[in-house]
Design a protein around this nucleic acid. Structure first.
Lengths: 168, 168
DNA sequence: TTAAACTTTCAATAATTATTGAAAGTTTAA
DNA sequence: TTAAACTTTCAATAATTATTGAAAGTTTAA
């Protein structure tokens, strides 16, 4: 299997994984393509490599820039915008994790707290049981979030992981 | 806000979170409904509570049973099947995490290894760089998986989390 | 055995999400 | 200024995914 085929396989697999995790396939593929590319790529190059439309390429690139996991790269003497991927896995994985946590988990935690507040006074057996259920989920989620915050925000996140691995 | 409204809010929020993470909304809502219910519920009760069809209710229940996060409950003197949710958050969160890892992450790791094997011999600068990229992702994913396996499979997973929280 | 009471399946359809591509917008060099 | 070279937007459409509900299948009591 030649290099091009391997890269293609990587891009496909990455797109598949993305869609299983609620990330748009094109977005995942654009990241994969940039990860596999040695030089910066223009929108046109991306369109051609993935056979997607200009609109799709543009929106996927916007989203990845927004996530902070790809960068613009200026090529002197060229008016086109070029893009490169953040290649440090730890860096971009942390960014994706932080972003999803902020946008998706934190709002849910907020709702859980609201529900707890609304239910706290209810003295019926049913009310108490529901309160307990929500509380359990909220506490659990909170623990996970606190821990991941610490790992993700730490300058030593990667080192921490390795130590954990040794200890456990 | 009365208890029913709070439960409704919980079910809605849970469904929303589910769809953001690639879990079918109905499936997430059925789990939420069972989590909030004191008694076991029949398929008909679920259909009515969530206003979904019999087919949808049945398939959602199958999937949750398959995940191992809800159980069948026999009510003596009744031919209907009743269902209850696993209420121990840690237990079902672990099951969901394990299942998704197995079905979605492990196959990707396998592909990454294949790609590495296919690329190892390629001596060009481009080949080497691609190999490094894939290797970095594979190593990182492997570390995360190993660590989560240890936490998830540990009998003391929950305790471990608490200790981690104290240490960090 | 039978038929009533249930569960499951699956083709048709609805709902949602992704994608296209042309038009509008913006920037830059001259 | 202008027009060429680009980027962005967005309504139309395609593709995917979820849902329905009736028909087929299964189980149980009598």
């Amino acid at each position: 299997m030649d290099l091009e085929a391997s890269k293609q396989k990587f891009i496909e697999t990455w797109g598949l994984l993305g869609s299983e995790w609620g990330i748009n396939r094109s977005v995942a593929q654009v990241q994969a393509l940039l990860l596999t590319s040695i030089e910066p790529l223009s929108t046109d190059a991306i369109m051609e490599a993935l056979t997607i439309s200009r609109g799709n390429a543009n929106m996927s690139l916007r989203q990845l820039l927004d996530y902070g996991i790809i960068y613009k790269k200026v090529v002197p003497g060229d008016r086109k915008e070029y893009f490169i991927a953040e290649k440090d896995v730890w860096k971009w994985a942390v960014k994706v994790a932080q972003m999803r946590k902020e946008r998706e988990i934190d709002p849910v935690r907020k709702v859980l707290s609201e529900i707890k507040a609304d239910t706290k006074k209810n003295g019926t057996a049913e009310g108490k049981e529901f309160y307990k259920t929500v509380n359990d989920i909220e506490v659990f989620t909170g623990q996970l979030c606190d821990l991941s915050d610490k790992v993700l925000n730490s300058q030593r996140g990667e080192l921490l992981l390795k130590i954990l691995k040794m200890v456990m």
